[in-house]
């Protein structure tokens, strides 16, 4: 059983843009972004049988890691699935899963650079491949990009109601789904 986590209130970065508004991209500090046309915002996206939800709001479409905590109703999970990417480098950071403010499980979240052709980390697989990127000066079709998938398996079903993220603004989470 799967349950996508609604991360609407935590979105803080605009990582994708449509062709006509590429200038608004903020995935990289220089204003580059994923082409939004290839992200299914209007329906459930399924990768490896795992349903993911992508959200596009006025606050953005992804969580840029800045040491925040994500709070949600308690759930007994066995695996958590992530889709995301890093910009300007490949990064791994510690990620804590808590229940009632007590750490229940700790792991590492790793995302390869968005324009790398292959995953830098064994944990990553390309979930969505994009034929180009949007930059502050237009569309660059020479540089392909990727949103990467990672799963974190717990040793046993674990009750969690909070995820603690590290402070690394070069890492971005676009979607999270619980498997319970």
């Amino acid at each position: 059983m799967y349950k996508p986590l609604n991360i609407t209130t935590y979105l803080n970065n605009r990582g994708s843009t449509y062709k006509q508004e590429y200038i608004h991209g903020k995935f990289t500090v220089s204003g580059s972004s994923f082409p939004a046309e290839y992200i299914p915002y209007d329906k459930v996206f399924v990768y490896k049988n795992v349903p993911f939800q992508f959200l596009l709001t006025s606050n953005g479409d992804n969580i840029e890691l800045e040491g925040q905590s994500l709070h949600f109703p308690a759930i007994d999970v066995k695996t958590i699935h992530f889709i995301g990417a890093s910009n300007n480098g490949d990064f791994s950071e510690k990620i804590n899963f808590c229940y009632d403010n007590q750490q229940k499980y700790a792991s590492t979240l790793s995302f390869t650079d968005w324009i790398a052709p292959l995953p830098r980390f064994n944990e990553n697989e390309p979930a969505i491949r994009f034929p180009g990127i949007h930059t502050e000066v237009g569309i660059n079709k020479h540089m392909n990009s990727n949103l990467w998938y990672q799963r974190i398996d717990f040793n046993k079903k674990t009750r969690v109601n909070k995820i603690e993220l590290e402070d690394n603004p070069s890492m971005h989470i676009f979607s999270i789904t619980f498997e319970y």
Partner: peptide, 21 residues
């Protein structure tokens, strides 16, 4: 060694972010 690498690059990216924004 890769941890060290990531720290330096992340630090640089943070600087760039603070400057650009």
């Amino acid at each position: 060694i890769t941890k060290a690498s990531q720290n330096w690059i992340s630090l640089g990216n943070m600087l760039l972010k603070a400057q650009y924004l």
